[in-house]
Amino acid sequence: MSTDEPLYRRDPHAWQEHLAEGNARQARKRVGADAILRDSQGRILLVDPDYKPDWDLPGGMVEANEPPLNGVIRELKEELNLELSTSQLALACVDWVSPHGPWDDSLMLIFDGGQLDTDQISRLQPDHNELKRFAFLAPDTARQRLRPYIWLRLEAALKAVESHTVAYLHDGNTG
């Protein structure tokens, strides 16, 4: 092969090393994946974690190299003993969160899981290593219990679900 050939043709092994080096220098982002889950009355499921002061949506941080949809499914199983499949969840919101406090930027996703049936609700069991309790709350009550930026994200996600779209936010805001 001629030396005019690109590296990927000339030396595939060297090309892979070049890509790995570039990958190692690229930014890494934290990714969180939460779920909107409702009961038959339209109330929203919130959880009360014992490791932070405020209520939250069920879900959590996605592990390294884990697809966000799989991450939220795993978190729901771990936190609440709730088993859902990928076909039961649809992306409703992506929120880019700028660096704040000790945290770098992150992507926070909300998936819509729709309405849980009475059997699913009866089997919910909080992991007491992470959660104090859970509750289905009317949107106004949920707003009072959630941190303001979480409420903004949830509110945008709920509107996106109603309009069959996906909301894209920057720090909880559309603009």
Rank of each mutant, 00 (worst) to 15 (best):
L19E: 12
L19K: 09
A20F: 06
A20P: 04
A20H: 11
E21V: 08
G22C: 13
G22S: 11
N23W: 14
A24H: 08
Q26P: 02
K29T: 10
K29E: 15
R30S: 14
R30W: 03
V31F: 03
G32N: 02
G32F: 01
D34M: 11
I36E: 02
I36R: 02
R38W: 05
D39Y: 06
D39V: 04
S40W: 07
Q41Y: 11
G42P: 03
G42M: 07
R43V: 06
I44P: 00
I44E: 02
L45P: 00
L45K: 01
L45Y: 03
L46P: 03
V47G: 00
P49L: 06
D50V: 15
P53L: 02
P53Q: 10
P53W: 02
D54I: 10
D54S: 13
W55E: 00
D56L: 09
D56W: 04
L57F: 01
L57G: 02
V62E: 00
E63Q: 14
E63A: 08
A64L: 14
A64H: 11
N65Q: 15
N65E: 15
N65S: 12
P67Q: 07
L69P: 05
L69C: 08
N70S: 12
G71M: 01
G71E: 04
R74D: 03
R74A: 01
K77I: 10
K77H: 14
E78V: 06
E79Y: 05
E79F: 06
L80G: 05
L82K: 01
L82A: 05
E83G: 12
E83M: 13
S85V: 11
S85A: 15
S85H: 13
S85Y: 13
T86L: 14
S87H: 13
Q88A: 13
A90D: 10
L91K: 09
L91S: 08
A92H: 07
C93K: 07
V94D: 05
V94G: 00
W96F: 15
H100C: 11
H100Q: 12
G101E: 13
G101I: 10
D104R: 12
D105Y: 10
S106E: 08
S106T: 05
L109E: 00
I110M: 06
F111E: 02
D112Q: 08
G113I: 05
Q115S: 12
L116Y: 01
L116S: 05
L116N: 06
D117E: 09
T118Q: 14
D119N: 12
Q120F: 08
I121W: 05
R123F: 10
R123T: 12
R123S: 14
R123Y: 10
Q125L: 15
Q125K: 14
P126K: 01
D127I: 02
D127A: 11
